[in-house]
Design a protein around this nucleic acid. Structure first.
Length: 315
RNA sequence: GCCGCGGUAGCUCAGAAGUAGAGCACUUCUCUGAAAAAGAAGGGGUGGCCGGAGCGUUACCGGCCCGCGGCA
């Protein structure tokens, strides 16, 4: 039995999911999502999530158009989800699909997650220590940077001295292990994989973004956000495009919850912001993918099918 | 028509008599337990137009044009 992995990546709003489903049906595959936002339960409209035929929280999988999907709807938005957790879930799903003698299709736009799977990043096993982070966070970046320079000079060289998020993580590792961060090492995915990237022209992307935003709002994004924030408050997971933009729109009841409309910005402004941020995201995603020479860029689905057929051919 | 306020970067606006800044946008880049996150670097302005005073002005004075508010 041949074990091969198909990867479909590309920026937001280019139609990755559709392609993945088509290929899954055609080549007997199952889909593993690689999307850092669709991980969260309840964040449906704003993340462009597909609708499940039948949810199944036990296996962390659901089916859509009868194709099983994994790594969607796995945690509550109050939780912070990390690459490591993702890697565990995704690899488990891939193993399971192999066992069923099917083809796993890794599909999403989160480059970091995809990289973690196919290049097998070996990330230092130091769990986030939120207490420690809360202690370090308020300090000025200079102080954190100088501290890191003393404790782990090599790591300090690789982090921009204003990037507190990374400085804090680096400090967390050195403080808890007392050892410098090991050099970058990888354990690549052990079976052959084909990476397909979907890329559209700028105008095409622009059109799709506008359509996407309009559709989301029509589907009731405002209500989704209002409900989520009413039950969870403005948790970090809502620092997501499609969600964060509503913060100004609503009047906060207290620091966490909202009650009504602020009148500061209107719905059109919110839509504009979502579209703008989506455009920026697309650029960032493309910047991430750009340098990976293994990606086979395609525009139309037939091209993909052809490439996949070739790839799956036993040699 | 009169009175007032304003016209400075793509947008919103600071500022000072000695040839200009900020935020956002834009371009490029980084990425090893928050990644739709968190950061870095960079480009860009005949300062509404015309004239005058002044060593010199986008900044002062006058006229004109345009926008906003008020009064008739």
């Amino acid at each position: 039995m041949l074990k091969k992995l198909i990867v479909i990546l590309g920026p937001t709003a280019v139609g990755k999911s559709e392609l993945a489903i088509k290929l899954a049906k055609k080549f007997n595959g199952e889909i593993v999502s690689a999307d850092s936002r669709q991980i969260y339960k309840g964040m449906d409209i704003g993340t462009g999530k597909i609708a499940p035929d039948t949810p199944n929280s036990l296996t962390h999988a659901f089916t859509h158009q009868e194709v099983p999907h994994y790594c969607i709807d796995v945690v509550s938005p109050v939780k912070i989800f990390t690459v490591i957790q993702y890697t565990k879930l995704a690899l488990a799903a891939i193993r399971k699909i192999f066992k069923k003698r099917k083809i796993p299709i890794l599909c999403g736009g989160t480059g970091f997650y995809i990289k973690a799977i196919i290049d097998g990043l070996t990330i230092p096993k130091v769990e986030p220590d939120w207490k420690l982070r809360a202690k370090l966070e308020p300090k000025p970046a200079e102080e954190l940077f100088n501290k890191l320079k003393k404790l782990d000079p090599n790591r300090a060289k690789t982090i921009e001295n204003q990037n507190k998020r990374r400085l804090v993580r680096a400090l967390e590792i050195i403080i808890k292990t007392k050892k410098p961060i090991p050099l970058v090492s990888k354990k690549p995915f052990p079976y052959p994989f084909l990476i397909l990237g979907i890329k559209l022209s700028e105008q095409e992307t622009e059109k799709r973004i506008e359509k996407r935003v309009k559709k989301m709002v029509n589907l009731g994004l405002e209500k989704e956000v209002a409900n989520l924030v009413a039950t969870h408050g403005w948790v970090p997971a809502f620092q997501t495009i499609g969600y964060q933009e509503w913060k100004e729109y609503f009047t906060p009841l207290n620091s966490k919850h909202l009650t009504g409309f602020s009148g500061k910005i209107d719905k059109d402004k919110v839509k504009d912001l979502i579209a703008l941020h989506t455009r920026q995201l697309v650029k960032r995603q493309m910047a991430w993918f750009k340098h990976d020479k293994r990606i086979k860029w395609i525009k139309k689905q037939p091209e993909a099918a052809k490439l996949v057929r070739n790839f799956l051919k036993p040699c």
